[in-house]
């Protein structure tokens, strides 16, 4: 039986006990007092992992691609942590998580840890929970951490700044050159993966992507010109080339002294997001408790009162 005492649990997790890791991550994910204190302890050991974010439209093949990346990184001697995010229902907070199944066989490899989380109110991109789990897995010694986002184009760019390398996965027929010129998804990628290139219109989409990237010189993130790689993830084609490109990007970041900066930014973001989440919950609670007074008040009166109550509670 697992010892649930926190220091013991952390020790077991650091020894690679997957049950201890899993239970620790749950505490962190739900931001319990124990979870936050565990995160603090692990954070002292973190700062070494290369974090790779994967985004793109639903159905582009992100999860399948991750299966390939896991295999390739494990064969190159890395410990791989994977966080996959699926949408939570805004009504019930329930979530149907169907990412893991695309690479269930790869989860059986040694040195691979995969965790699914619900987006819990975040519309796109990477949530507070995902960043916290990243920090924890980094502290536990996973040196490649892959985060798969919900699959939306408009992302919280501040949060994306906490990720080292961003892969945008797209597919033939996903839009013409006009779509490619739009703001959002075409601005955030360090590497674009054109997946399913065994489809007939692959060349056309490739040229469209290339045009969009070549013409976007002033918005290159960190001065890095984004790369495009073709792949057929389900047949494992293009995977080792993608990993080579990801490693090129990592070397570039290190050269520019941006590797550590991203990790520092991530920690600041985690602090901000936890604090915001806790205060949001206090506000919701106050509004719920004073519902009957609030509905009979003028908005201009009600808002300062709620803020006052929040301040009182935080004192």
């Amino acid at each position: 039986m697992l010892n649930n005492n926190l220091p013991k649990l952390i020790e077991e997790a650091l020894n690679g006990n997957e049950l201890a890791i899993a239970r620790l991550l749950t505490k962190i994910e739900y931001m319990t007092d124990e979870g936050i204190s565990a995160l603090g302890a692990l954070s002292k050991r973190s700062g070494n992992a290369h974090v790779i974010g994967i985004t793109g439209i639903p159905g582009a093949g992100k999860s399948t691609l991750i299966g390939g990346l896991i295999q390739e990184y494990v064969s190159r001697g890395h410990r791989v942590g994977v966080i996959v995010i699926d949408p939570s229902s805004p009504y019930t907070m329930g979530s149907f998580m169907g990412n893991r199944l695309r690479f269930q066989d790869k989860t059986m490899l040694k040195n691979v840890f995969v965790r699914s989380i619900g987006s819990r109110g975040y519309l796109g991109g990477i949530s507070a929970e995902a960043l916290m789990l990243t920090e924890a897995l980094d502290g536990l010694g996973y040196d490649k951490i892959i985060i798969e986002t919900v699959g939306a184009g408009q992302t919280d760019t501040e949060v994306e700044q906490s990720v080292h390398t961003i892969l945008v996965v797209t597919i033939p027929g996903a839009g013409d050159d006009i779509q490619a010129l739009k703001a959002g998804i075409m601005e955030i990628g360090d590497i674009y993966v054109l997946n399913k290139t065994d489809r007939p219109d692959a060349e056309l989409t490739f040229n469209t992507l290339k045009f969009a990237i070549d013409s976007s010189e002033i918005s290159y993130r960190d001065g890095w010109k984004p790369l495009i790689v073709k792949a057929v993830a389900i047949k494992n084609e293009g995977i080792s080339e993608i990993v080579n490109k990801i490693e090129d990007h990592l070397n570039y970041l290190k050269q520019k002294e941006l590797f550590k900066k991203r990790i520092i930014d991530r920690r600041a973001k985690i602090v901000e997001l936890i604090a915001r989440r806790k205060i949001d919950e206090i506000i919701s609670e106050i509004v719920k408790k004073n519902y009957n007074t609030i509905i009979n008040e003028d908005i201009t009166e009600a808002v300062p009162k709620v803020i006052h109550n929040v301040k009182e509670l935080l004192r």
């Binding site: 939570s88 229902s89 019930t92 907070m93 329930g94 979530s95 149907f96 998580m97 169907g98 893991r100 199944l101 269930q104 066989d105 989860t107 059986m108 699914s116 989380i117 619900g118």
Partner: peptide, 19 residues
């Protein structure tokens, strides 16, 4: 189960006990 507010990880077909 999802509609009842649970987080459901669906692992798909032909799974081994180990998986």
């Amino acid at each position: 189960l999802k509609d009842a507010g649970m987080e459901v990880v669906y692992t798909g077909l032909r799974q081994t006990p180990e998986q």
